[in-house]
Amino acid sequence: MAVSLAHTWRSTRITLEMIKWEHSIFALPFALTGAVLAAGGWPHAVTLLWIVVCMVSLRTAAMAFNRWADAEIDSLNPRTKMRAIPAGLLSKGFVAMFTIVSLAIFLFAAAILNHLTLLLSPIAIVVVLSYSYMKRLTRWSHLVLGLALGIAPSAAWIAVRGTLDPRIIVLTGAVLLWVAGFDVLYACQDFEHDRTHGLNSVPQAFGVQGAFLLARLMHVLMLGLLAWLVVLFHLGPIAIAGVVLVAGLLLYEHSLVSPKDISRMNAAFFTLNGIISVVFFISVAADIAVRNLQSR
């Protein structure tokens, strides 16, 4: 029994490392932004807790499923062949069970939040899991990944209100373009591999130079949607400053990499994007808090 528990714990730890669960920070601040906008301030602590559980469990399931679905593809790619499954550190059966458990936690949390959250939860599952097969089908798989994270603020709104306001879909669109843009850049690392093995991506279809242009366009459009969101919710100078800071961070992110030099891709992809989501959430939350104080 002790050996079995030790093995399960070791496999769980390796799985969490494999899926980089701490990178839930990418989408979580945008989900919290949706929750704060829905509540007009901080939602009830219990609601906030279950939103976080939903976010982390579904993102965990999606990443584990992606590693399960891509195990054979990863084994052929020099950049990914040392991931846990192709390296033999984890079995596909364990990762599949880990995915199922994560999905069960997500459904439980969705059921606690409200009826509409539970009703729509299967759609969220289909969206986030389907991404794992999109590179086999379309060059626009980056947009599906963007949608998988982009539904977070709309889902959080539903969790708080029990209804959906069309205005929050603007933030979903912004997150979709933000994620798709940096995923296009990240895919440039696998340009030769994808072309050789017949996998679809924007870099594979349009070349690295074309991919960079499309990623920049996506991020410009994302900034436009964030500005529109500020107008729709009548946010003030702190939120506007947040959009300006996001623009500056995106500009810096794009300055770190170029079609001829992608060596600093990890710094651009992980570090800066985590900062971007946190900065925007803090600016919106602070703006709403100040407005509430002034209206008292």
Score class of each variant (00 low, 15 high):
115 H>E: 14
255 S>W: 10
143 L>A: 14
177 L>G: 03
81 K>H: 14
272 L>N: 13
48 L>V: 06
273 N>L: 05
133 Y>V: 13
290 V>M: 13
165 D>R: 05
42 W>H: 11
65 F>I: 02
59 R>Y: 05
52 V>I: 15
204 Q>R: 15
186 Y>L: 11
52 V>T: 06
49 L>D: 04
262 I>D: 11
262 I>W: 05
271 T>E: 09
111 A>Y: 12
226 L>Y: 07
222 M>D: 11
33 T>K: 07
250 L>N: 03
231 V>D: 11
257 V>E: 09
245 L>A: 15
290 V>A: 14
21 W>V: 13
88 G>Q: 13
33 T>H: 03
59 R>P: 01
94 F>S: 04
213 L>R: 12
244 V>L: 14
257 V>A: 08
18 M>V: 00
85 I>Y: 11
214 L>R: 06
162 G>E: 13
103 L>I: 10
90 L>W: 08
75 S>I: 08
136 R>S: 08
184 V>A: 15
230 V>L: 09
85 I>H: 07
110 A>N: 03
159 A>H: 03
187 A>R: 03
264 R>L: 11
6 A>K: 07
28 L>H: 01
172 T>C: 09
260 K>W: 12
125 I>F: 03
128 V>Q: 01
215 A>Q: 00
190 D>P: 10
124 A>E: 00
214 L>P: 04
132 S>C: 09
31 A>T: 01
230 V>T: 11
218 M>C: 15
266 N>E: 14
170 V>D: 00
255 S>Q: 14
182 F>W: 10
180 A>G: 14
97 M>N: 10
296 R>I: 11
129 L>D: 04
19 I>F: 02
93 G>W: 12
40 G>N: 11
237 P>V: 11
81 K>L: 15
284 V>T: 10
59 R>F: 00
286 A>D: 00
35 A>M: 09
77 N>T: 11
249 L>P: 01
72 E>D: 15
199 L>M: 13
225 L>Q: 09
87 A>R: 13
146 G>D: 05
170 V>A: 12
126 V>N: 07
48 L>M: 14
115 H>D: 14
247 A>V: 04
137 L>E: 12
141 S>L: 04
279 V>D: 08
206 F>T: 05
190 D>T: 10
102 S>F: 01
111 A>V: 04
16 L>E: 00
281 F>Q: 04
268 A>P: 02
113 L>Y: 06
92 K>E: 15
159 A>I: 02
110 A>K: 01
143 L>D: 03
53 V>N: 02
66 N>S: 12
50 W>N: 03
199 L>E: 05
115 H>V: 11
293 L>T: 07
285 A>C: 13
24 S>R: 01
43 P>Y: 02
26 F>C: 01
8 T>M: 08
87 A>M: 13
81 K>F: 13
165 D>I: 07
125 I>E: 01
45 A>S: 14
182 F>A: 06
279 V>N: 09
256 L>H: 10
13 R>F: 13
32 L>D: 02
